[in-house]
């Protein structure tokens, strides 16, 4: 932003008048009360700092640092590597149907397209630059956000490459899971912590996931995402993680994931105690 460069200058030339006044009253040379363009009040649509955008719109559910929040972490290496930029933008714009993730675009928009783009670049770990017009009186306007290798480095660092064997976050249309097979996958991949039928493990375990209220509040898509990326911030392994899994555990395939989702979906409909 064009006003970024004018902050720390002391005693700029061309303003002898206030310099004189300042010299009269102060030992320093910039009166602290002088309004600074960098601190000007911004309309919600003029806010282009990731800290402020994320801190007011996302942190409540996704956690202050993008993890250890109530909702699935955004600052998650696998998620950041695998999610598509357009897909991410669409989730922010329209929310996730079937979950409590609200929309931030739409009518009237909560976030502008440029702000959504900024969030996407930050989450995807793409260095970017914010361009804007700047007027001394009315402040910044006409924002655009573009990829720039030498631009703003993303706060959560860059993203490593998506592992080759990682199932896609979005199910391919041909896939349809089989709940019965899902139960076998479940026994191998999940049961140790979540219990044989998802009823929850021992005292310090992660708790039940066969709960109909829980399943009613989470969509198949969100389940799929959690199965693939896990919740490393809470100790849940990802699709390939070995923690708490048998020694011969093999990374889950796309089909495995689809079967697991189908199993959980069937629990949502009929409860965990009915046969899948």
């Amino acid at each position: 932003m064009s006003h970024g460069q004018r902050v720390s200058h002391c005693c700029r030339p061309g303003t002898p008048l206030w310099l004189l006044a300042a010299a009269l009253f102060f030992t320093g040379c910039e009166p602290p009360g002088r309004p600074n363009q960098a601190d000007r009040p911004l309309r919600p649509d003029q806010v282009m700092s990731f800290d402020r955008l994320y801190g007011t719109r996302c942190a409540g559910c996704h956690g202050a640092e993008g993890n250890l929040g109530a909702a699935p972490p955004l600052n998650d290496p696998l998620f950041r590597a695998a999610v598509g930029e357009e897909e991410l933008a669409e989730i922010i714009r329209s929310g996730r149907p079937g979950t409590l993730m609200p929309r931030f675009g739409g009518e009237p928009p909560v976030l502008t397209d440029a702000q959504i783009k900024l969030l996407v670049f930050e989450i995807k770990g793409v260095p970017y630059r914010v361009r804007s017009q700047f007027d001394e009186i009315t402040g910044p306007s006409d924002f655009s956000v573009e990829v720039a290798a030498d631009g703003q480095p993303p706060q959560w660092g860059t993203v490593s490459k998506r592992p080759d064997d990682m199932p896609s976050l979005t199910p391919s249309s041909a896939e349809s899971g089989d709940a019965k097979r899902g139960l076998q996958v479940f026994a191998q991949a999940c049961a140790k912590c979540h219990g044989e039928r998802g009823e929850g493990g021992k005292d310090d375990g992660p708790g039940a996931i066969n709960n109909q209220a829980f399943l009613a509040l989470i969509s198949d898509q969100a389940l799929r995402r959690l199965i693939i990326t896990g919740r490393p911030d809470l100790g849940m392994p990802d699709y390939a993680g070995k923690t708490g899994r048998p020694d011969d555990f093999k990374p889950l395939t796309a089909a495995d994931v689809a079967d697991l989702v189908a199993l959980l979906a069937s629990w949502r409909e009929t409860g965990a105690n009915a046969q899948p």
Partner: peptide, 24 residues
């Protein structure tokens, strides 16, 4: 609601259902 994070200690002790409750 969208800016103040659920305290980490509460997230860590929560079951999946309770996490959803926190999101609610």
């Amino acid at each position: 609601w969208s800016g103040d994070p659920v305290p980490v200690s509460m997230v860590k002790q929560s079951t999946p259902l309770q996490l959803q409750g926190a999101v609610v």
